[in-house]
Nucleic acid binder design. Structure first.
Lengths: 202, 202
DNA sequence: CGTTTGTTTTACCGATTGGTAAAATCAAAC
DNA sequence: GTTTGATTTTACCAATCGGTAAAACAAACG
């Protein structure tokens, strides 16, 4: 157990304040583009005080990334092989879109990490994400083979769901510039429903 | 004319060497995460020698971004209102996917800039990208109204094309981890063709 | 040759980087 | 209310940051 549970309330509170500030900064500038001073100011603490709660800049980043990936894969985990194929896949789409709306910073943190070559999260990708995707891809393939949905590549289906839902979080600046004030997620939800429904059932 | 054409061959060659190195570094680490020393080493030049050809780190970044956006919007520009709607849209998809394969660094450079809030390219977004998207969205809307394609939100259609094609460049590490060696673009081309064809014609 | 122009290197600068030492302060238990 | 441990601040450090000055070098040209 390398991370003993925080003892006091102050530790609990300050650690979460720091992680929240770190999420703000890392999600915008990536690991190398972020500074401890930025995070400290955003957290309302002094820099040495940050380092009283975390041993290093990297420790904050790693803790954010690791707690992220679990949450990130939950919706995919929830895809039920025994449910109705079309509704299961569409439910996954909507859950993923909802996460992009609720946790845009987490989405951008992940995007930054992947853009930089996943130096800190690669092991979790091969040992956590890949097996899960393989498992769910097999489920989707079975649905295709048994004629319950159209015959499509399950991997690219999953990629396309990731790409389109995360796009609304990661490229929010661009999206809202083009839409000029309108709420992107409203329209996105309807559009994605139509898109994937027509793909799976046509 | 703030940028006089380079006079000598050495200038022409070194400027392009520097821009190429800058593209390597900036596309991976973003503006703030990149250093002049990194770019200099990647270019095989000394840092002061870099600054002989470019006045600052930012100047390299800006020049990369500006020359990028033109190229980036070309495929959308090429969408012909008088062509066959389905084929025009699909041609756009394939052109965009081809660009993601040929110019993944440019895609990641752009992604980094947007992730960081588009601090250096926002004007070009509102003055260049938005009007073009509005124009093409109107074209697509006309196609919908006249029954040539199904009734869909043209803005979200365009977003989805961007998201899915650029995903293969921006998230290349993740994609190739999951696919484990297979060429992503082969399957992506077929999948995207099926996806958008069924959306537009079903 | 010498001169001029273009190019590269050496040496350096102040500011900021991630991180540390240790004193000062605070909080809670005794 | 004092003692003990948790917390915060002050002062600092070596390394790296973006950038500059100026000398050294190279090339073209008369």
């Amino acid at each position: 157990m390398p991370k003993p549970t925080p003892r006091t309330r102050i530790q609990e509170r300050n650690r979460s304040v720091i992680l929240n500030a770190g999420l703000d900064v890392f999600s915008q500038f990536g690991f190398r583009g972020s500074t401890l001073d930025q995070i400290a100011e955003s957290a309302g603490l002094s820099k040495p005080n940050l380092l009283y709660y975390f041993p290093s800049k990297e420790a904050i980043h790693v803790e954010l990334l690791e707690s992220l990936l679990e949450t990130w894969l939950d919706p995919l985990h929830a895809m039920d092989p025994d449910g109705d194929p079309v509704e299961e896949i569409l439910a996954y789409v909507h859950r993923k879109l909802e996460m992009a709306r609720e946790f845009p910073r987490e989405s951008r943190l992940f995007a930054n990490e992947i853009l930089q070559g996943a130096p800190r999260i690669m092991p979790d990708l091969t040992e956590g994400l890949k097996p899960l995707v393989d498992e769910k891809a097999a489920v989707i393939r079975d649905w295709s083979k048994s004629g319950k949905i159209k015959d499509i590549d399950p991997y690219h289906l999953i990629f396309s769901i990731w790409a389109m839902t995360q796009h609304y979080a990661d490229f929010e600046v661009q999206v809202s510039t083009v839409l000029d004030g309108a709420d992107p997620f409203e329209g996105a939800s309807k559009y994605l429903d139509t898109l994937f429904r027509s793909l799976l059932t046509a």
